[in-house]
């Protein structure tokens, strides 16, 4: 990379933001362990927040704080207000998710998604009182060709 070509910082930041979202999304899709999914969710939210702040940035503008000096061009304050809220939402949801994970661990003793899904399915069927779950067997579908009713086969 020759020195003259200074990479445009904002483009880099956008790449960073989208990178975070993509890594977060991949983590969500990729993960098997619930805790790692919560982490990935946090990452993706950080990426979205960065994207929102970038949306409010103006070239060579200063922070929207009035210091006694001459009033220079300022960055757009609105996205910053929004991101403030978004970050705290993210942490609130994360704290709740961790609390839920604690209860899941207590209830089932594992945090692996595949096992949990099977355990939950078993519980729901037990609670509903459905018989042995042979999911392959379709329930009473359109009355199939059980021979013409009343006709000797």
């Amino acid at each position: 990379m020759d020195m003259t070509f200074a990479p445009d910082p904002l483009a880099l930041l956008v790449i960073g933001a989208l990178g975070l979202i993509v890594v977060g999304a991949a983590g969500l899709a990729f993960g098997r362990h619930l805790f790692r999914l919560v982490l990935a969710l946090g990452l993706a939210e950080a990426g979205a927040n960065l994207l929102l702040v970038i949306a409010g940035y103006r070239w060579d503008a200063v922070a929207p704080i009035l210091t006694g000096s001459a009033p220079a061009a300022m960055v757009d304050p609105v996205p910053q207000a929004l991101v403030l809220t978004a970050i705290v939402i993210g942490v609130g949801v994360q704290a709740l998710a961790v609390a839920l994970l604690v209860r899941v661990k207590l209830a089932y003793g594992t945090l692996d998604l595949a096992e949990l899904k099977a355990l939950v399915e078993r519980d729901i069927r037990a609670a509903a009182g459905i018989g042995e779950p042979d999911s392959a067997q379709a329930p009473a579908t359109l009355p199939g060709p059980a021979g013409l009713i009343g006709e000797r086969p």
């Binding site: 991949a26 899709a29 990729f30 993960g31 998604l113 899904k117 399915e121 999911s135």
Partner: peptide, 14 residues
């Protein structure tokens, strides 16, 4: 709806 890891399909759908 029985997908083990819904987020994977979410990713694909998005």
């Amino acid at each position: 709806y029985r997908a083990i890891n819904p987020a994977f399909y979410l990713l694909a759908a998005s």
